[in-house]
Simulated scan of single mutants.
Amino acid sequence: MKDIDKYAYMSALRPLDPTQKVLLTFLLLITCLCSSSIVMFCFVIGLMGWITIYKGHIVMSLYLKLMTIPLTFLLLSILTLLFEFSSDASVYLVSLPIGNFYVGITSSSLQTVCILFFKVFASVSCLYFLCLSTPMTDILRVFEKFKCPTFLIEMMSLIYRFIFVLIDTAFTMHTAQASRLGYKSFRLGIKSLGMLLSTILIRTLKINNNLYTALECRGYAGSLKVLNEDAYKRINYFYFVILEAILLGLIALENFLLGR
């Protein structure tokens, strides 16, 4: 998570208007969620990857590593959709008899799994484009521009920054335990992990109270005032229209070729 935040500030795409980046992300995301075109999904994955890596100067190994994170959750979802139960073996492409029933893979389940797989990765690539090119402060500023409740924006800002404090605390405590052979064996590892989690909870509450006290001492009244950077580079919205037209064209072309 630290790498995402660090590369968002270092990205060559950061000077672009965050409002336009958020709009582009949600435009592509909604198009992917409302479509079932594998060709369009592959185009979005390639386009977002190319923009994020080559235009944003993001390390390719980091991007590929991030893309593999949702793979575990995706595989669990795929397995539940891929296999079906029926008493008729003729409906399966591949089947295995279990008593009076058959479990196997049908053409419809295989098609559903393929669409789900590419749809998820296309959606994730859109979100990574936004996360790796736009710091959280800029995203929250966009929410503020769209009249999102101030209380919700402040809560998101404080929680986001507090996550890094929590990560640093957990990493420091884990290093201290490991240096004292706290994870030498499985039994000691379980005990050390329990102590780590309980201590993190206590320290988290303490740090939270100290943070709130510090904010009140500095006149916090429910809103954090920060300097805004208005000198953003803007993209012509005509390119957004062209991109959306290309996506809709790919969807129409695939439907035409498949006779839908």
Rank of each mutant, 00 (worst) to 15 (best):
F151E: 10
V103M: 15
T106P: 12
E244S: 15
F256P: 00
G99S: 05
M60T: 15
Y7A: 07
L247A: 03
T31I: 13
M60F: 15
N228W: 00
L227V: 12
F238K: 14
L127G: 10
I235N: 06
L27E: 02
D138Q: 07
K184R: 11
D3N: 13
E154T: 06
V113I: 04
L201Q: 11
Y128A: 02
F43G: 05
M195C: 12
L81K: 15
L47N: 08
V103E: 10
R260V: 14
D5M: 10
Y239D: 02
M40S: 04
Y7P: 03
N255P: 01
C32H: 00
L197D: 02
L205V: 15
F186R: 10
L257K: 13
I202D: 04
A252G: 07
P149W: 01
F129P: 08
L253K: 11
L116H: 06
K119C: 02
G46C: 14
L181Q: 07
L140K: 07
V44K: 05
L96K: 10
S192N: 04
V113C: 10
L71I: 15
E84T: 15
S185L: 03
N228M: 04
L130W: 03
K55M: 10
Y239C: 05
R141A: 10
N209W: 00
Y237M: 08
T68D: 08
M40E: 02
C32R: 03
